[in-house]
Design a protein around this nucleic acid. Structure first.
Lengths: 340, 340
DNA sequence: GCGCTTAACGTAAGCGATAACGATTGCCAA
DNA sequence: TTGGCAATCGTTATCGCTTACGTTAAGCGC
């Protein structure tokens, strides 16, 4: 009983029940103006045929669909956590969720994916969308909430307090006694990347440690991008005693490179990341990082979008969520290099 | 630049370009029969207006949509892993993915959710669907692949070799010297639950250990369902020295209950699960479990569905994937209870 | 019994896009 | 000059569903 023939439509039901499709529609949507007898007939026909209204046709005709969309580029731990939060926020809310993910990972197709998917969904399939980590500004005919927006975005958004988080973790390294602290930056167009770098600079400056441009590598949040940068930093004669990477994914790669070069962590090198993805706790040693509760990012974004769609949102359109320093085994005081 | 007015449609483009919608459609779909000049005009109009074809309208009109669907009830670690596999399999494949998740967690709405969502999508929005852990048999007008089907299902499906996995983990417990081994079962309608219980019984029987019905608790894969069952098992005078739960989610709850009752794991009690979700490695102690590579489940399912849709599938319609025993700290030999 | 309201339905016009089909043009051979 | 054939483009029906509107018939007071 797998592939029955053509899908059963509303007119199939109408024919079997001996009424018009308008009446079937009325019954399905529980509208006034149908006699009890007719309702029973239609109900029975629906039952017999196993009819279920087409999401597509309904969406096309109606303006409201009661479906919210989530557009994401790739699907990793980060996105998974966000999704849990979104689902939780939408639980028992009458809104269903559609996640749209394009298939090509790093194809040429990529540029502008958020906008393309957004446009394809909004105005028809969904009442509003959440966009996760877009690469550019987005615009839509229906409400949008962005998680991790680009810099200077004016679109409603939810972001972690990246500035304070990054400041705290660098202060942590400074507190341990590190003075030469490397940094691997994220995709510069993103607000998160900018804030994390700014936090790094600010913490150093306030501690009276000069910012050395040679210690800053320009990554793009893609873990692989960190590999050559880490190698370059660690092969220097005056290599840093600690590296702070703007994302856990990149920080984990730094750990790999360090091992590859025969450096012990945290003995020879301290490493810190940002995000607190599940893998960071599993790493050996555990990665010191900044927790930004991706779950909450998703939860708040969904909550905001829901209210935006129903038009009852009162709060600010740009939300900043607190972060939390998580200290694990990958950071320790630097080995004293002073000769005896 | 957030909420522009109405979405821009094909006729907007046609008007601006001074052609008919048919011509725009031809240009968009790269079909033959449009002059180079007209193509340029239409392209420019599309660019200017930021037009993107509506997924919904296209789906309604066309039969093929190049979109695959994934229907899931809830969204947890399990589903997230599956999704990664699905995405990977679909990478660079021209197929996009839509995940449809209904919002109510444990509402009355639940019964038959798979079938309802499936019908709403198939025949219109998607060319085929993956259904994760349905509660009943499903049928659709387009190809379907089920991950973790119900018992005796004839629908194309991908499942872990639950029987051999469960047998192995119980043999592991037996090998450590355990004889009184409790079992917490899963939702009985699922093939996975049945196979895991069967593996438990088989391993005991083959080792000459009688199966004690009093040591079997009837859970339903929902972690919470394991709590009262674990408590009951562990408060018995002749409590088991080991408990095998049919899922990691339930096994982790057993750990909690044990701690609550002042039992040390693995000293007083060994605990084993099934699934190897990320949380199991993080637990204290680490949970011994059976890895079923949810990633591969997703990957294989997507690959199969893809071929099914394009009509080039040759292999078997029911795939069984190997499992792997993962021994961690939660299992150890039983403390000898023989008096000195 | 008349006009009126009102419940109960059918009719038909779209929503945005596609595709079969027809209409128009230009061009070349006859 | 004209028939014929491509090439190019518009017209229109249609996908499944909703909804404004029209229609019918029953019910009501007078």
């Amino acid at each position: 009983m797998a592939e029955g023939g053509a899908p059963v439509t509303m007119s199939d039901v109408a024919r079997l029940a001996g009424v018009s499709t308008a009446t079937v529609s009325r019954v399905v949507n529980g509208r006034y103006g149908v006699s009890a007898g007719t309702i029973a007939q239609v109900r029975s026909a629906i039952e017999r045929l196993g009819y279920e209204s087409s999401l597509v046709a309904t969406s096309l005709r109606r303006s409201r669909t009661n479906v919210l969309g989530l557009v994401t580029h790739s699907f990793q731990s980060y996105t998974a956590e966000v999704l849990k939060g979104v689902m939780e926020a939408l639980a028992q809310s009458s809104f269903d969720l559609i996640i749209y993910a394009n298939s090509d990972l790093y194809g040429t197709y990529s540029e502008g994916w958020e906008q393309r998917h957004l446009t394809r969904l909004s105005g028809t399939l969904t009442d509003g969308c959440i966009v996760v980590t877009p690469w550019g500004e987005v615009r839509s005919s229906t409400p949008v909430v962005v998680i991790d927006p680009v810099r200077d975005s004016t679109v409603p958004s939810v972001t972690a307090d990246n500035l304070s988080g990054a400041t705290t973790v660098v202060e942590h390294l400074l507190g341990l006694g590190h003075r030469r602290i490397g940094f691997i930056a994220g995709r510069s167009s993103l607000a998160a990347a900018w804030s994390r770098e700014e936090g790094y600079r600010r913490a150093l400056t306030e501690a009276g440690v000069p910012v050395d441009p040679a210690l800053i590598g320009r990554g793009d949040f893609n873990p692989e991008s960190a590999v050559p940068l880490a190698r370059e930093l660690l092969e220097r004669a005056d290599r840093p005693t600690a590296i702070f990477a703007a994302s856990d994914g990149m920080a984990l790669k730094v750990l790999e490179v360090a091992k590859e070069l025969g450096l012990s962590v945290p003995g020879d090198l301290s490493v810190a990341g940002f995000d607190n993805i599940p893998e960071s706790a599993l790493a050996e040693p555990g990665l010191t990082t900044v927790d930004q509760s991706m779950y909450r990012l998703g939860y708040e974004a969904a909550h905001m979008l829901k209210s935006l769609v129903t038009g009852e949102w009162e709060g600010p359109r740009q939300i900043l969520l607190p972060t939390r320093l998580v200290v694990r085994g990958s950071t320790a005081p630097p080995r004293t290099t002073t000769r005896p």
